[in-house]
Computed example of a mutant assay.
Amino acid sequence: MSASTDDTARAGVDGGEFRRPTMRDVAARAGVSLKTVSRVVNAEPGVSPALADRVRRAVTELDFRPNVGASSLRRADGKTATVGLLVEDVANPFSSALQRAVEDVAMPRGVVVFSASLDEDPERERELARAFAARRADGLILVPASDDQSYLEAEVRAGTAVVCVDRACRGVDVDSVVATNRSGAAEGVRHLFAGGHRRVAFLGDRQSIWTASERYQGYLDAFAAAGLEIDPSIVVHDLTDTGVADGATSTLLTRPNPPTALFTAQNLVTIGALRALRRLGAERTVALVGFDDFPLADLVTPGVTVVAQDPTAIGKLAASVLFSRLAGDTSPTQLHVVPTTLVRRGSGEIPPPR
């Protein structure tokens, strides 16, 4: 094929507008049939090494890229080698670590991961889950924003593998991978009690979120086990971002009889509380234990003591369970639990005032 013909294959024939090279262009360039090109591109047998080399050279010269969607429709198993990952917010450090872990399991298998943020919106969850399923994703890994995933029942029956992470699925029988939210929160509060604190404030995310509810229950468990009464005036829920958490912390610490310690039940809430402490000059006098780690928590002074989840372990386990189901595992579904770890860095070890 001449240079001018190459240009036509790359740019198209109508006014020089761009057109992606097709299998027909590759066949013409290599001097073989369309079927031969199809077999080479889809790694099917029946093509001699010499012809296969000619096709591969033509593919390289024309920068041909197969239509993966069209190829998947021709596969006997109907698989698209894609999975969807629906998280709370891809900008959240927990979500981004989770995504990377899923990718690390998927990529060696030749599977592409598409992700989206749910923003704790149940309707957005349903729309995006259905959109991924409609685009024939082989499986979904989902951080539920709603308390009912029964809308996925038809997709599961149709063969879509589903695994819920961070929060257990409800209304559909699928695997879930969660952390020890309740017992981990209780451990964090007990750690503050062990340091001598009794006025320990709770600052949490939306009460409607399963993990937020579990962590609050852990806070209640720790008080009950210690035989202590909770002051409702230092319990604050529904802190949706760092700015709101900053304001709530400032309010608690500037009122009469403020708490001597804070238990913050989500990483963005912890960051907001830390900003308030530093602005008020109280980072060395008010103890702080946060649930969930975050970047640079060990570099501030004092370092932030946290009940750390392991999003990498959670993501890898969720992806492994998903691919096991896709490979034909029909064993009963399970709730997989990944333990949390108390990481002492200094802020949680500040004693109460004498």
Rank of each mutant, 00 (worst) to 15 (best):
S96H: 05
P259I: 07
L203W: 03
V90R: 07
T82M: 14
V236W: 03
V321T: 14
D148N: 09
E155K: 11
R279M: 09
L142E: 03
C164H: 07
V55E: 00
R167G: 01
T333N: 14
L73N: 11
G272D: 00
H336R: 13
D231N: 10
V111A: 03
G139W: 05
S33I: 08
E120R: 08
A225G: 11
T240C: 11
L152W: 11
L203M: 12
R345T: 02
A161M: 10
R279H: 14
R199S: 08
T341Q: 07
S331C: 12
A52Y: 01
M107E: 15
R74H: 12
L142I: 15
V189I: 08
G184M: 00
G171H: 08
Q266L: 13
G328D: 10
V32G: 01
R157W: 14
S95A: 13
G315K: 01
T333E: 13
A327Q: 13
T330V: 15
S176N: 11
Y219W: 08
L296T: 15
D298W: 01
R198S: 11
R20S: 13
E123T: 12
K79W: 13
R39K: 13
T340D: 02
N181H: 07
L98W: 02
Q266V: 10
G227S: 08
L34E: 10
R182D: 09
T211K: 00
L252D: 05
V174M: 08
H191I: 04
T36M: 03
L192S: 02
S117K: 07
D148C: 04
A225Y: 09
T36H: 01
V83A: 04
A327D: 15
A248L: 06
L73H: 09
R170V: 12
G15C: 12
E283P: 04
L277C: 06
V83G: 01
T264R: 00
A30V: 01
